[in-house]
């Protein structure tokens, strides 16, 4: 009796060849992208997406061509934050059309395909039961499509806004191979530092991505009336020590400013109007350090 292992071919489907074609398409797309930068954190709620949108705006203000892929397949937010939720991607020569924000940042997100703001992300299947067996594979394929099938044109930097946690990171590393670097974001609390420590290890040791550095977001609160800045931890040593312990650069601290959060909620550019605020200066300084790292 013949067994599975006796099957010499897959009956002409050439599944391996089709998967290779998918990866070749991705490589071809990335060939026109200067740098891929993943913004990640093990902790949710530390402001990854807000920071990604602001960093992309900063690079655009410095006359770089920039794109963002919202890799949070199930909880996309970048389209809203960049004011492009209205855009419906459509086929154009070379792929699907990305949205373009008021700052000139190109954006691709699941959110652009969903009917309602409250639509859950569900995939066609005979049954949603036992979806844990196949859903991660769909999400991996969709992330590949969002990167590979968007008609980005030539980009200096493609930011990838990763969802909380580090489980998607190895997938991304497999997709982009040696093309990506990671910026890790933490909050100011010891809890956040503890969770993010694991992400740094995952990025560097598991996924093998070079880590640009660590950013501490919302490390202080700036009063919009008088400009007084109040630190969560005045010593500010926690994040810097965390970076030093993992032998990665500490890229800086970003204060919380309600105007930045409001701009993100409204999908409006922030830096172009409030770049001289402490948070604006901190983001521009962060972008400048990243530029040095990327040698742009």
């Amino acid at each position: 009796m013949k067994t599975y292992h006796d099957i010499a071919t897959d009956g002409g489907s050439d599944v391996a060849g089709q998967v290779a074609d998918q990866m070749a398409r991705l490589s071809s797309r990335l060939a026109r992208v200067g740098h891929v930068v993943a913004i990640m954190s093990g902790k949710g709620g530390v402001g990854k997406s807000t920071l990604t949108a602001a960093l992309a705006e900063a690079f655009a203000l410095m006359s770089h061509s920039v794109g963002i892929v919202d890799a949070d397949i199930n909880g996309p937010s970048v389209a809203l934050m960049t004011g492009v939720r209205h855009h419906v991607p459509h086929p154009v020569p070379g792929g699907m059309s990305p949205a373009t924000s008021a700052s000139g940042v190109k954006v691709m997100s699941m959110d652009l395909f969903l009917q309602h703001d409250s639509s859950a992300v569900l995939w066609e299947a005979p049954s949603q039961r036992h979806a844990y067996t196949w859903r991660p594979m769909v999400e991996m394929g969709v992330l590949r499509e969002l990167i590979a099938d968007t008609a980005w044109g030539a980009l200096d930097v493609l930011f990838i806004d990763l969802p909380p946690g580090s489980d998607r990171l190895p997938n991304l590393a497999d997709l982009v191979e040696d093309r990506a670097a990671a910026v890790v974001v933490t909050g100011p609390t010891a809890v956040s530092h503890g969770v993010v420590a694991r992400s740094i290890t995952a990025a560097a040791d598991v996924a093998g991505l070079p880590v640009v550095g660590l950013v501490e977001n919302m490390s202080s609160y700036v009063c919009t009336a008088c400009g007084h800045e109040e630190y969560y931890d005045r010593s500010g040593s926690g994040a810097a020590e965390l970076a030093a312990a993992h032998d990665i650069p500490f890229l800086g601290r970003i204060p919380f400013d309600s105007r930045l959060a409001l701009a993100a909620d409204r999908g409006e550019p922030f830096l172009a109007h409030a770049g001289d605020a402490p948070v604006g200066r901190a983001i521009m300084a962060l972008a400048a350090r990243m530029k040095d790292y990327l040698q742009l």
């Binding site: 419906v88 991607p89 086929p91 792929g95 699907m96 699941m110 395909f113 969903l114 009917q115 309602h116 639509s119 859950a120 992300v121 569900l122 995939w123 066609e124 769909v138 394929g141 969709v142 499509e145 969002l146 099938d149």
Partner: peptide, 14 residues
């Protein structure tokens, strides 16, 4: 086709 999996299999799309 570009984004074939996404456009074909996503429920509740625009």
């Amino acid at each position: 086709a570009p984004m074939e999996t996404l456009r074909t299999n996503l429920q509740g799309k625009r």
